[in-house]
Design a protein around this nucleic acid. Sequence first.
DNA 1: CTGTTAGCGCATTCAT
DNA 2: ATGAATGCGCTAACAG
Lengths: 334, 334
Amino acid sequence: MNAPTVRDVALRAGVSPMTASRALQLSSKVAADTRARVFAAAAELGYRPNELARNLRLGRSTGLIGLVVTNLANPFYSQVALGIEAVAREHGLKVILGNTAEDVERERRLVEEFALRRIDGLIVVPAGGDHSHLALQKLGVPVVLAARPPSNLAADCVLVDDFGGAREATMRLITGGRRRAGFLGLPAAAWTGSERFRGFCVALNEAGIAVDERYVRRGQRTIEDAEKACRELLALVEPPDALFCANSRNTLGAFRAIRATGADVELAGFDDFELADVLGVPLILVAYDPEELGREAARLLIGRLDAKSGAAESPPRRLVVPTTIRTYGGTPSR
Amino acid sequence: MNAPTVRDVALRAGVSPMTASRALQLSSKVAADTRARVFAAAAELGYRPNELARNLRLGRSTGLIGLVVTNLANPFYSQVALGIEAVAREHGLKVILGNTAEDVERERRLVEEFALRRIDGLIVVPAGGDHSHLALQKLGVPVVLAARPPSNLAADCVLVDDFGGAREATMRLITGGRRRAGFLGLPAAAWTGSERFRGFCVALNEAGIAVDERYVRRGQRTIEDAEKACRELLALVEPPDALFCANSRNTLGAFRAIRATGADVELAGFDDFELADVLGVPLILVAYDPEELGREAARLLIGRLDAKSGAAESPPRRLVVPTTIRTYGGTPSR
DNA sequence: CTGTTAGCGCATTCAT
DNA sequence: ATGAATGCGCTAACAG
């Protein structure tokens, strides 16, 4: 019950394995009736060429690109994956998937295993701060980072305009008349966290407003944390009259706190989310297209694959996916 | 700049390729100092064994399981993928990913390509109604369907308790005092759609209530469609006083229509979703664990892989993932 | 047009 | 403990 090989097909068709191989490849250098016989035999046997052997022989690559993400259950990353898969498909590549659950050690192992499998390229949403273990370029495997810039690594990357989006959203808070803007953010160590905080600060400074450290809370990881942090801000003697939240978890936590206390705080945040329009609160959200981020990452990678035969290595590239501001009204649609 | 092979390592270590190979495999039948030399050489060269060649030689499988889903951007399927990846990882398998965008032709091609790549097994969320093109079992590749049962195909599958969940939620509407329940559903062709409708009907019948066809609308594919359909129901001379929605899109559309009209309609639906608790409307939702569904599918597949060397084929298995009812209050948390 | 030879990188045999 | 020969399945290169 072993899978049939070209030999089996050739035998059945009464030709040499070579002829069978050629016929199957639609090579023109084979007689029409011979080809027909070979195809018939292949069909009867249910023959499938063994891609492994073929690739080995042809010295070709696997046509596999490794994708390593921190959390596939996060719709953001699954959309990134979707974009990558789409572009990969256009180029005849397949995606092999790994989830790290934000565990750097798992990431390291995954990348190692992918390398052994001879992936053609690697796209990573890195978990940790140091990326030296992702250096597959030495093996001739290009690497692209998604959503976070490389550190200790020369690799292309695609980023979101964290700074610009945060700045713009914060500006809107200010032009809306608010003067005491607070910040609910990620751990400072996270790159996106610091960029978004920088955007927040710059927007305030441009408006001649100093950043008030009392209004800055960081490191909330869950909606509950964020709600708690926001309540603390609202309980200050002179509470903030506006908040910029660095991600949707913080935005949602803030929303809960604000709705519960009935405070007059204008809310802005990074990341758009479903149902933002029905919360019944005015909302300024920074939106972007994760799928496009994935597509760009894949394009970058494929560019490297195509260029590999070509000239010298070009320096690492850095692409930025733009953000847009979405505003939602506070009145439920009637 | 070609990747180094065992030969290169052997040359450098001053041994034969065979000895190098053995040393690298940690075979005991090699002198300690020889092994050390081989390892040193391998390290200096940055040697990586070529999995392709190794697998070819060993006649082994690729250790790849194909995952084909209809829409990776759907959080449901990405969670399924996460569950599959987790179990696959435990068993040293990797997941190769394909997205069909609900296109049966693409699904057919993807499965074909996966088969050529000699995947060990296949998990599919099938797009269409007929699954005969998924019959890889003839090639010795087990197939597991996720979320939908096989038709024209002998394959294992893991389903959600569509019927039970719908029945239970509908019962809750009735015990809540409602008598005129409507149904907002999927196209009847969709298996989940018909099962959920069946659950709805049975619950009504058990309560001695006849299904009123005026209150049944199907085939809504977007939230907007669902809202429109719901508005039509609410505009009837004797509108329904309760609604069961077959998926979250319908639930959200119904929510919008109900909130906009202020109608007194109790709402139930299949699929839990983020923010369900802040909508300010009482909600009865059927929840389940997509990740668990993925894990079960992977376990089923791996069971087949393990059993392949063993006895005769056992008949197709069908697993059902349970649902739970979640109720959300109508009063915003204060 | 078709067959023969050879080898991709590795590891199982059988030698030594 | 090590090495030589051999072949996994496939296909370029060179015959014929």
